[in-house]
Computed example of a mutant assay.
Amino acid sequence: MKTENYLRLTQFYQNYATVVDQANWSAWLDMFTDDCIYKVQARENYDRNLPMAALSLTSKGMLQDRIYGITETIFHDPYHQLHMVSSPLILSESDTGIIESQANYTVLRTKNDGIAEVFNVGRYLDRIRITQDSIKLESRLCIFDNEMILNSLIYPI
């Protein structure tokens, strides 16, 4: 493992949390490759290799469509998210700049009435392309531990 890559990866995970928490959707999109996969799936389905997912997007174009829906068409009770992400664990690192890693996450949700609640907890399983100039997610699987998502899933995890 290259120490420099670990530090960059750690910063990337924290930047991801900040970007999503601040609803900076253009920066969120920039964190993915064009041919990316973004999936939010219950741990039970993941462990049993079942395809059912709460959200399954298979390209940057699909991520853009989701952001358009969030910002232009989906009506929902407004809320804020706060992500807490653990340090990443590098599972593998290739000479070609591909890192497979994971990190645990907790997402708190606060509605405008001021009551915070645990919204989603789980782990990210990522395939990341790292170059001299950038870090991009090729694949992010958000494997959540709870069997249900409170209300509906609007914003990315």
Rank of each mutant, 00 (worst) to 15 (best):
M1D: 11
M1I: 08
T3L: 13
E4L: 13
E4H: 11
N5Q: 12
Y6C: 03
Y6D: 05
R8F: 00
T10G: 03
T10I: 01
Y13R: 10
N15T: 05
A17P: 04
A17Q: 01
D21V: 08
N24R: 12
S26E: 12
A27H: 03
W28Y: 15
W28N: 06
L29R: 05
D35G: 09
D35M: 08
K39I: 14
V40F: 04
Q41F: 03
R43T: 05
E44K: 14
N45M: 04
D47V: 02
D47F: 02
P51W: 01
A53F: 01
L55Q: 14
S56H: 12
T58Y: 12
K60V: 01
K60W: 02
G61R: 07
L63Y: 03
L63M: 09
Y68D: 09
G69H: 09
G69S: 13
G69C: 10
I70M: 10
T71N: 13
E72Y: 00
E72T: 04
P78R: 06
P78L: 03
Y79I: 02
Y79C: 05
H80P: 00
H80I: 03
L82Q: 12
S86F: 05
L89G: 07
L91V: 10
E93T: 03
S94M: 08
T96G: 02
T96I: 04
T96A: 12
T96P: 00
I98Y: 05
S101C: 11
Q102C: 14
Y105E: 04
L108T: 09
T110P: 02
G114P: 09
E117I: 12
F119G: 02
N120P: 00
V121T: 15
G122W: 01
Y124S: 11
L125P: 00
R129N: 12
Q132T: 13
D133A: 13
S139E: 14
R140A: 01
C142Y: 00
C142G: 03
C142H: 00
I143G: 08
F144L: 13
D145Q: 05
D145S: 11
N146Q: 15
N146M: 14
E147V: 01
M148L: 13
M148I: 11
I149N: 06
L150D: 10
L150I: 07
L153E: 04
I157T: 12
